[in-house]
Amino acid sequence: MYPTDLKYTVTHEWAGIEEKTGIVTVGIGEYAVKQLSDIVFLELPAVGDKLKKGEPFGAIESVKAVFDLNSPVTGEVVEVNQALSDNLDLLQTDPYGQCWMVRIKAENQEEIQALMNAGDYEDFIKKGQGKH
């Protein structure tokens, strides 16, 4: 049910990995979008910002609350999808494709390998360990 070409974090970010360049594209998955409901605000980092695995690179807000967006890898932001902020409704229909948030030049390939694949992520959600 979750795209198998992506990897996932315990905080429901997805990561698309381009092996040749080591660039990781990051967004949030369907599960997080459903949990958030009424998404009204997105804050993203700037190109050049240095990110650490597991630490916030931005925030997404529903009407009621604020949620951190956590980086799946350590690295530098090379591209930011600024247009997404004005089209948050798109997250409801396709959180994986055009709703990417940042592209990160990953420093450490091992961090990428440590992320969950789609099957593990699905089990993780079924066990009700969702944080968002």
């Binding site: 409901s37 009424d38 009204v40 529903s62 009407v63 009621k64």
Partner: peptide, 8 residues
């Protein structure tokens, strides 16, 4: 109940 269909 916090919401049924959505807060907005």
């Amino acid at each position: 109940p916090i919401y049924y269909t959505g807060i907005i």
